[in-house]
Nucleic acid binder design. Structure first.
Length: 503
RNA sequence: GCCGCUAUCGUCUAGGGGUUAGGACGGAUGGUUCUCAGCCAUCAAACCGGGGUUCGAAUCCCCGUAGCGGUACCA
């Protein structure tokens, strides 16, 4: 495999690969998170490494157990099983950061001792002021490091005032080299870096500290994450350096964007980005994975459909692009219908049953299994998501449907003369079906074609009139399939009812 | 404001010093059919701009421009 000039060859890595997905449980797993998880998972599996799930919940105010479990559910649904971490733990003990505080405290003490960090007594208001001023002065930094060399009496005064300090890292004054597998390498001017808060005034450490510590503690070899973290990278490297910790390799993957080109986020896009909502609508995990992997990654100019096995074999960070990718639901739908159609009728029926049950259309799925499979068979390739089964087949379960006005107008007619003709056709068909010797597709089809052709009635006109009578709509599966599946009794009940409505 | 990243059809992308710039989704048209979907066929649709380098630039370099990301005691 060739390597491009600005990419670090992935194959150079010899250590057993260890990667991690580190969500913060402040909401559901979103599309971007799913893709990050997938890239990590594929990279790990491709290299026979470990995929670790760490919970970055140092923001205790916003983290919830509920969110954590939603993330687990979504990841498991996608089949992205982790080797260590999550709710199972592993060789590194707990992988939940809020439970690892003692570990961080040790490092913080070390930083304070060796002079690489210091207490900052500035209040949020003061900081806001400093920021505003810095911005007005067109400064690069928004904090000036004023607490670096606080006199002892100033500290005493602040303490006496009851101020609780934060801890800030002292940024180095030499350039920081950042190597990125996707974006290439560059040196960061230290003048652009400021002394970040690494411990809140309540004693809880912050992301930039805990993340890089745990990456080292958990022997993470590659950090694959979204580019929103790009600016955090030099900060984290600086912290690792100050602590003498190993720095993993980084790979920043481009953002997933909305149709307007903006980053997809829970805040702005709500359920549109929630993986679990897609599951609930009847998207298949295979489709979701296949969709999401192609956002920023491609294999060649031919292949669009990839099984997970193929992805594990073919995935390579070197083929991940640098620019953001727009989330296109049409493509997801196409992929989803593809995967639904891959299912055989029995499996598809199985998949669709919960959706019928959810709407109360189906009470006992163990009964009439053949009939249900017949319906699924008749629906054929018309499902883009499993949920579509409900609107597309509800008339099989109930005759309490509306006759769609537009369809009625077009096919039953909008004049008394035309309605009269429709009633006549329906009446004739009713009679044909009443008298038909065997109620099967071939016989019915032959009888109806004979009727239309002999009476010079357009097939489409008769069929559409009948379709509306039986289903309420002007579209759907083959009408002969529908007739047989409904059964003679039901058909013979629905036609007279339709004739009554056709006035 | 500051720091950073990015730039091929509407979208996902392939390609990458010399190509009719390829594929897929979506769109359009025609065919098949009882409708819809599907399937088949056909079509429209792109290298951000300007300078270099070069025989030759979409490709390499520089400069713009635009978009996006970050700029928290969030992650």
């Amino acid at each position: 495999m060739n390597e491009t000039s600005n990419s670090i060859s992935v194959s150079v890595v010899k250590d057993p690969v260890r990667v991690r997905m580190a969500p913060s449980p402040t909401g559901y797993l979103h599309i971007g998170g799913a893709r990050t998880a997938l890239f990590n998972y594929l990279f790990a599996r491709h290299h026979n490494g470990k995929f670790i799930l760490r919970i970055d919940d140092t923001d205790t105010a916003r983290s919830t157990d509920e969110s954590m479990h939603e993330i687990y559910t979504a990841l498991k649904w996608l089949g992205l099983e982790w080797d260590e971490g999550g709710d199972e733990g592993g060789p590194c003990g707990t992988y939940v950061q809020s439970e690892r505080k003692a570990i961080y405290d040790g490092y913080i003490a070390q930083l304070l001792e060796n002079g690489n960090a210091y207490h900052c007594y500035c209040t949020p208001e003061e900081l806001e002021e400093i920021r505003t001023q810095a911005r007005a002065d067109k400064q690069t930094r928004s904090y000036d490091g004023r607490c670096r060399e606080l006199a002892a009496e100033a500290v005493d005064r602040f303490v006496a005032e009851g101020r609780k300090p934060t801890v800030r890292i002292k940024m180095p004054d030499t350039p920081i080299r950042v190597d990125d597998i996707i974006l290439g390498s560059r040196n960061i001017d230290p003048a652009t870096l400021e002394d970040e808060v690494i411990v809140r005034s309540n004693g809880m450490p912050n992301y930039n500290l805990t993340s890089i510590i745990d990456d080292a503690e958990m022997q993470i070899t590659h950090v694959i994450r979204g580019t929103e973290h790009l600016n955090n990278t030099p900060k984290q490297i600086a912290i690792a350096n100050a602590l003498g910790l190993n720095v993993p390799q980084f790979a920043h993957i481009p953002l997933v964007l909305d149709s307007g080109g903006r980053k997809m986020s829970k805040r702005h896009h709500g359920d549109l980005v929630a993986v679990n909502r897609y599951r609930e609508q009847g998207y298949l995990p295979e489709a979701m994975l296949n969709f999401v992997v192609r956002l920023g990654w491609s294999y060649d100019d031919k292949q669009e459909i990839f099984s997970v096995e193929e992805l594990i074999e073919k995935f390579d960070l070197a083929r991940v692009g640098k620019s953001g990718s727009v989330f296109d639901i049409k493509k997801l739908e196409w992929l989803n219908s593809h995967y639904i159609n891959q299912l055989d009728v029995s499996a598809r029926t199985e998949a669709v049953i919960p959706f019928w049950q959810e709407k109360g259309l189906l009470l006992d799925p163990t009964e009439n299994r053949d009939w249900l499979e017949g319906i699924v068979e008749a629906v054929g390739e018309r499902l883009t998501k499993l949920q579509d089964i409900v609107p597309q087949t509800s008339y099989f379960f109930t005759d309490a449907f509306e006759y769609e006005p537009k369809a009625v107008k077009k096919w039953w007619g909008n004049s008394e003369e035309k309605r009269e003709k429709t009633r006549e056709i329906l009446t004739n068909i009713l009679q044909i079906l009443e008298e038909i010797p065997t109620f099967d597709i071939e016989t019915i089809e032959a009888a109806i074609w004979q009727y239309t052709d002999e009476n010079n009635i357009k097939r489409v006109a008769a069929m559409q009139a009948l379709r509306i009578a039986l289903t309420g709509a002007s579209f759907g599966p083959s009408l002969f399939d529908i007739v047989v599946l409904l059964g003679k009794d039901e058909v013979l009940k629905r036609i007279p009812k339709a004739i009554e409505h056709c006035t």
